[in-house]
Amino acid sequence: MSEANPTKVAAKARPLSPHLSIYKPIPTMVASIVHRLTGVGLYFGMFLFAWWLFAAATNQAYFEWVNSLFGSLLGRIFLLAFSWALIHHMLGGIKHLVQDTGRAIEKNFTTTMAKWHFVASIVLTILLWFAAYAAR
């Protein structure tokens, strides 16, 4: 403390606000993180949709090869995750649009909504896959 160098004072580690790992996970917080994670997942998944379209435009042999990849076990697991992420992110988005108008922001209600959000996205994904298998 002998020399008071102002640049050194500024560079000193200052207290930070706590990071995410400090907090106990609560439903609204998990919903928020999952909304962002599903968004990031869909971002890269969209490229695979583009690839599928590209394959359909290329020729039959190439399309059938790409389609067989999506139809494989790993491909189906990916598509299951992708469809759930899409439905979950869409429901979250609709929730956000409603909340943008100042509605549905009371704390107990948002907690209940965050829990039902997961239930709804999982149920809708299962229904979608039933519909997809029933259609074949």
């Binding site: 059938e64 869409m90 988005g93 259609a135």
Partner: peptide, 24 residues
């Protein structure tokens, strides 16, 4: 785009699901 995505994604899901397992 979020508002536009809702109907567009629903149609897209219908389109992809209706084409699952369909011949080329």
């Amino acid at each position: 785009t979020a508002v536009a995505n809702v109907p567009l994604v629903l149609i897209g899901l219908y389109l992809v699901v209706s084409l699952t397992g369909a011949p080329y």
